[in-house]
């Protein structure tokens, strides 16, 4: 474990808590893409199947449970409890166009071909594009509430910090995972225009307006 991965995991946890708290407090999921949340739940489910078979550390097991529980709780809030506030009209990204290519790619490019490894690889590829429905929704509505942009900033920062973690681990342990690194770079690049808007607008107290 290193400081980059620890702060990355914390940024990830903070993002999830910001979102859950926002939906719970405002009793509304307006402006939130349920599809992205479904993709995140799929990412954690396919990645943490080894939760009961392999033990790394109490931290690792604890965080896996938290990510799984909070992602399903968020989906419950969006699609069940506050479904009246779910914005169907703007959450229209075709997620099958993200799931199927990720699965195909995972079957073609993986470290070795077995059930858990292919699913892990699928979860890595899917995570890199899982935010697209949310970013698409923000561009369609043309704006995002500031709390949603804080959520996106924290979520985008988590994988950017993981890139620093991978550089650090390569420098200190000579360990690297090219699949995770390439997907992580793609994932972070997808946030770049949002990061720019967040830093130039939201941090100055302006609303996040995306060019529609």
């Amino acid at each position: 474990m290193n400081i980059f991965r620890l702060t990355g995991d914390l940024a990830h946890l903070i993002a999830i808590i910001i979102l859950l708290h926002k939906i719970w407090k405002s009793r509304s999921c307006a402006g939130i893409s349920g599809k992205s949340q479904v993709l995140f739940a799929l990412v954690y489910t396919t990645r943490y199947l080894d939760l009961v078979t392999s033990y790394v550390s109490i931290y690792n097991t604890f965080m896996k449970f938290v990510f799984l529980a909070t992602s399903y709780a968020t989906i419950y809030l969006i699609y069940v409890k506050f479904k009246a506030t779910y914005d169907h009209n703007h959450d229209t990204f075709r997620i099958e166009f993200l799931i199927l290519p990720s699965l195909a790619l995972a079957l073609l490019i993986n470290h070795y071909f077995n059930f858990l490894e292919v699913l892990w690889t699928f979860s890595i590829y899917l995570e890199s594009v899982a935010i697209l429905p949310q970013l698409f929704m923000v561009s369609k509505t043309g704006e995002a509430e500031s709390i949603t942009s804080h959520y996106l900033f924290a979520l985008g920062s988590y994988r950017a910090l993981y890139i620093l973690n991978w550089i650090y681990r390569y420098a200190t342990e000579g360990h690297y995972d090219l699949i995770a690194i390439v997907a992580g770079v793609v994932q972070t690049v997808l946030y770049c225009d949002f990061f720019y808007l967040y830093i130039t607008k939201v941090l100055k107290g302006k609303k996040l307006q995306l060019p529609a």
Partner: peptide, 10 residues
């Protein structure tokens, strides 16, 4: 293929 290095990252 790479041996099964344990996945210790989230």
């Amino acid at each position: 293929s790479k041996r099964n290095k344990q996945k210790d990252e989230l």
